[in-house]
Simulated scan of single mutants.
Amino acid sequence: MKNKFGFNIIFALIAFPIGLALIKDIDFENLTLKKPALDIIYIITFIFAIYFLFKKKQPKE
């Protein structure tokens, strides 16, 4: 049996705009966040979206 990686387009559509918002809100010179509370929620959501985006599919028995 092959280990298949699943690619879920729904999680890609979630991760893309959240990633863009994070890039826009991070100040790379000072390594600070513009809106810390909101950006922490964005980071957590982005990590979960990327995890579920590339999660391995379970083999059906």
Rank of each mutant, 00 (worst) to 15 (best):
M1K: 09
K2H: 05
K2I: 06
K2W: 04
N3Q: 13
N3H: 13
N3E: 12
K4H: 08
F5L: 14
F5Y: 14
F5S: 12
F7E: 10
F7M: 11
F7W: 13
I10K: 03
F11N: 04
A12N: 02
A12G: 07
L13S: 03
L13E: 04
I14K: 03
I14N: 00
A15E: 00
F16P: 00
A21E: 06
L22D: 03
K24P: 00
D25R: 06
I26V: 13
D27W: 09
F28I: 15
E29F: 04
N30M: 12
L31Y: 13
T32Y: 01
L33I: 01
K34S: 08
K35C: 01
K35I: 02
A37K: 11
A37Y: 07
L38K: 06
L38A: 07
I40H: 13
I41W: 14
Y42E: 13
I44C: 15
T45V: 15
I47R: 05
I47L: 14
I47D: 05
F48N: 11
F48I: 15
F48G: 11
A49P: 13
I50G: 09
Y51Q: 12
Y51D: 14
L53V: 06
L53Y: 11
K55M: 04
K56E: 09
K56G: 03
K57C: 01
K57I: 07
Q58I: 08
Q58M: 04
E61N: 07
E61A: 09
E61L: 09
